[in-house]
Design a protein around this nucleic acid. Structure first.
Lengths: 211, 211
DNA sequence: GTCTATATCTCGATAGAC
DNA sequence: GTCTATCGAGATATAGAC
């Protein structure tokens, strides 16, 4: 049983190759739209090998999805750092969380795919991924609630606020092809666009919460 | 050729039945994951009829997608109303746009699906849908830019601001299954949750833009 | 226009040689 | 562990009766 904090540590090189390829294809095409042949091609491996290492498509998908949920949940906690002011905490979180998504856009796409498809696997895996220790998203909610009580920010609903922060950090990745069509500069240099966007997001949300 | 402002007006009842069913299934399962049998079942017709009215799966998908893009683009303009203050304009837009998405979540899912899959159809249809008259999203950008210059709001990048507004209005629908798991109240009464959320979004963004 | 039956093909999965 | 060949289910698409 793989450890949540060190995902895929018990995987061989070949298994990891398959895993990474499967994540990419499932993320683009969805659970049912993905083709085993496409995964094999992306992993630069024979199609029969997929079934040797992972029994079947369903098993492969659930394995990939389970790891992805864990990583996604953990990223909340990892992006939150102790900081003297709420301003600094917010800035660091936005930076850390956006960087996490940028470093693994496929993981984000897979999460969204599952949501679009109805999220039947979400309940089980989300509960499992959050019950170890405090739930990471809850930490963020608590942070906002504390800042609100301390008078550092306006009195706001912390749950809705966290959802808004996550929305703005994630959505431009979700709709990246559309953004690249509509935003002249995003198409040219995505990395630079992301940097500008982080600044904008902090600015908008910080002012939105200021007393 | 169907008119953008009155989509599907040239469709027979049967065609519309198929169209609506196809939208639902494509939105959930994706372009390739969708099954023609599932669409036929949802439309409560025979599978052979799908091929009688729409030649094949690819044609059906592109037809549905083209209409969806048009509707989505048009919704920007429809949600924008002349209002004496920017505050009122923003409130009306958030309300209108969220209501549009709520009224047709499948359309939103289809757009996101296409983005996740790489958006190969987006360029063509997006250009086509925006070139008739001014591009609707541009109107919103101009509105923000004007308010910014008039001193009604802070000096902000209008493109990034519009993207942020859209992000917050859309994302909680995209991730609805996750939201329903994490938000206690969303699971119980989604409609009430959406109402509360509209208030929160206006509040957050309005303060975020206030001088 | 509608339905049944069926042709054709794609895909997931396995068998078996090496 | 790896590969080729292939089976069989299930999917798209069509033929043809009504």
């Amino acid at each position: 049983m793989p450890d949540a904090s060190t995902p895929r540590s018990d995987y061989s090189d070949t298994e990891r190759q398959i895993f990474d390829a499967a994540l990419q294809v499932f993320a683009r095409e969805g659970r049912h739209g993905a083709r085993m042949q496409a995964i094999a091609d992306a992993a630069d491996i024979n199609k029969a090998m997929l079934h040797y290492y992972f029994r079947d498509k369903k098993t492969l998908y659930e394995e990939v999805f389970a790891h992805t949920v864990r990583r996604f949940m953990a990223s909340f906690g990892e992006s939150l750092e102790e900081a003297p002011t709420f301003e600094e905490t917010l800035r660091v979180f936005i930076d850390g969380y956006v960087e996490f998504v940028r470093s693994d856009e496929a993981a984000m796409r897979l999460m969204v795919q599952e949501n679009l498809a109805g999220g039947s696997l979400l309940g089980k895996h989300l509960r499992e991924a959050t019950k170890s220790g405090e739930a990471p998203p809850q930490i963020l909610v608590d942070t906002i609630a504390a800042a609100s009580e301390a008078g550092e920010i306006r009195s706001v609903d912390p749950h809705h606020t966290v959802l808004s922060v996550i929305s703005t950090c994630l959505f431009f990745f979700v709709a990246r092809p559309t953004v690249e069509i509509m935003h002249p500069d995003a198409a040219g240099d995505w990395g630079a666009f992301v940097e500008v966007r982080k600044e904008h997001l902090f600015d908008l949300i910080y002012h939105g919460l200021a007393p």
